[in-house]
């Protein structure tokens, strides 16, 4: 178990895990699509030049090549920005990976508003919905360095295809090394009984933590779940917190259609129907700006979470 507290960026946690896997298992190969320096997969290239392939700006071919490598018994990781890793290559990842039963570990960077200055053209809000259409793919969105490192490795160990939603820049250190982090098991960061806030990813979990404190001052005890694994969904935990709180707010850095909120609502309506609300981008397209601006523009703020949670808690 490695300590990730000295890492400066989320991408470093991703590459720490992949490089470790590459050192341990010579079947691990890494493909990038001219964004190697953006993720730092150049570190894999330096360690294992014979197992790293830069596919150039041709993402569809990269996913097909990865599927072919998988059929040879190799263990490919691929990286490109989340928009290209999902929208651009959807048919390839559906057929050559999913339908053909191949195992490819796909890293999609800059989820949602974390794409910041690359703007609306580069802002993946739909990647979760698209990946959910491909049966069997594990989907994770860890909220901090340690969970990123742990979960990338755990997703690899499942030997099923996986998609990791990973911010490149910025970092959160939420979980110290040694924290029990288990793929498919959400983490309860606060245990209240007035309202349950389910958050995915660094932006929403971070804002959720702030919101819990503000709500506490207002006399509202909220539950906060870091739902780092989107598939498989931790239905047991979701049912438990829904029963306890009687209302659920789902916060995701993405689109409602096909996203985490819809996924949870579909489950709870059949098991523990409760009042629900959702924080996401709804029908809007992305736009350019820094993270603070974008969070405000889309309402991805602690204040907005508090406002929604207060209504649900009443």
């Amino acid at each position: 178990m490695k300590d990730t507290t000295k890492l400066a960026n989320m991408r470093d946690a991703v590459m720490l895990a992949i490089n470790e896997l590459g050192d341990q298992d010579e079947r691990v190969v890494m493909l990038d699509a001219d964004l190697a320096s953006c993720l730092g997969s150049t570190s894999f290239q330096e360690k294992h030049p014979d197992r790293f392939f830069n596919c150039g700006i041709a993402e569809a071919n990269m996913i097909g090549v990865a599927a072919g490598l998988s059929s040879m018994g190799l263990k490919p990781f691929t990286h490109t920005f989340g928009i290209f890793a999902s929208r651009r290559v959807f048919d390839q990842l559906f057929l050559s990976v999913g339908y053909a039963h191949q195992v490819v570990h796909m890293i999609g960077t800059d989820p949602g508003v974390t794409a910041q200055y690359n703007g609306g053209t580069h802002m993946p809000f739909e990647d979760i919905a698209l990946l959910r259409q491909v049966p069997g793919v594990t989907i994770i969105e860890p909220s901090d360095a340690q969970s990123m490192y742990e979960l990338v490795k755990q997703a690899y160990a499942l030997d099923k295809s996986s998609y990791t939603r990973a911010p490149r820049k910025g970092i959160a250190h939420r979980y110290p090394a040694g924290t029990k982090i288990e793929l498919g098991k959400g983490i309860e960061l606060a245990t209240g009984s007035d309202v349950a806030i389910i958050a995915t990813g660094s932006v929403m979990v971070g804002e959720g933590e702030k919101a819990v404190e503000i709500l506490k001052e207002k006399g509202i005890n909220a539950t906060l779940v870091d739902l780092h694994t989107i598939r498989p969904l931790d239905t047991e935990l979701l049912e438990k917190v829904a029963k306890r709180c009687g209302s659920v707010l789902v916060c995701e850095n993405g689109r409602y259609a096909g996203g985490v909120g819809e996924m949870i609502a579909t489950h709870l309506i059949q098991t523990v129907p409760v009042k629900m609300d959702f924080l996401n981008v709804g029908e809007r397209f992305g736009e350019v700006g820094n993270l603070a601006y974008l969070q405000k523009a889309f309402g991805f703020t602690a204040e907005n979470i508090v406002a929604k949670a207060e209504k649900l808690a009443k």
Binding site: A66, A67, G68, L69, S71, M72, Q92
Partner: peptide, 8 residues
Amino acid sequence: SAAIGIAL
């Protein structure tokens, strides 16, 4: 593309 991956 898969064939290229296989050859690789």
